[in-house]
């Protein structure tokens, strides 16, 4: 069954049309990536899917009982709010310690349970956010620029882990990223968004389409080729001689 079906969606913010005539479907086990320039409405689209924004036209249908795991672009934690990682994992529903530890381990944040959220590095923080999203065993995982603040290698690692995760959980993944090179490889389908959807398809097809090239320039054409290549023979990291 289709996890998510968006039809004729318009979203207006402050009287301005930010998204227009969006049609989008996400099937179980599928990784769909939304790319687009700044201000193209990527985050707005995700926020309307989780229910933060009301459509001004059209509809968003979710499979009955769909659980969403959501990783926000950035989470600002007020300095006055004390919060351990394990307490954070239990919001809004308390969980017993064992599954929390397991899912933290799975997301690459093992052993951080007792730490304060404010004491985490950028990468650890994003992994904890991912772990919290996984805790609900989501049918649909929604990632909004989930690797912001990570270096290139960190974000490549992050996206590389999505594929096994998707297989394990059998969930669909809908994500937004502007790191074209990194996400192209892990996506089944790419959606190019610039207020409305301008092209859509497999990474190979999208990167060859004129609309995509007009949006990101000719450099972006190599996004897939580069990664298909790197995937085959992963570059060996330079060893420091000290």
């Amino acid at each position: 069954m289709t996890l998510l079906a968006i039809k004729d969606l318009d979203i207006a913010l402050g009287g301005r049309l930010v998204l227009e005539d969006i049609h989008l479907r996400v099937e179980p086990g599928e990784i769909v990536t939304i790319v687009g320039p700044n201000g193209s409405g990527k985050t707005t689209l995700l926020r309307s899917i989780i229910g933060s924004l009301r459509p001004s036209r059209g509809r968003i249908d979710k499979a009955p009982g769909l659980t969403i795991g959501y990783v926000p672009q950035r989470l600002h934690l007020d300095a006055t709010l004390p919060m351990t990682v394990s307490r954070f994992m239990g919001l809004p529903r308390r969980r017993s310690a064992r599954p929390v530890e397991q899912v933290l381990e799975r997301a690459g944040a093992g052993g951080l349970g007792g730490r304060q959220m404010s004491a985490l590095s950028g990468g650890q923080f994003q992994r904890v956010l991912l772990a919290r999203a996984l805790l609900e065993s989501p049918d649909l995982l929604i990632l909004d620029e989930a690797t912001q603040g990570l270096d290139h290698r960190g974000s490549a690692d992050f996206y590389r882990e999505l594929e096994p995760l998707r297989r394990e959980l059998g969930c669909g993944v809908l994500m937004v990223s502007h790191e074209l090179h990194v996400v192209m490889r892990s996506s089944d389908r790419v959606v190019c968004l610039n207020r409305s959807i301008c092209c859509e398809g497999t990474p190979e097809r999208v990167t060859a389409s004129p609309a995509y090239l007009a949006m990101f320039g000719m450099d972006a054409r190599d996004a897939v080729a580069l990664y298909r290549h790197e995937h085959d023979s992963r570059p060996v990291p330079l060893e420091m001689t000290s």
Binding site: I50, S52, G69, P72, L77, P92, I142
Partner: peptide
Amino acid sequence: WSGLLTATLNTDLAHASGV
């Protein structure tokens, strides 16, 4: 309590969790 706390953390996170 839990709903209040989740909404205080982040409104999008709250929406996604059904709060």
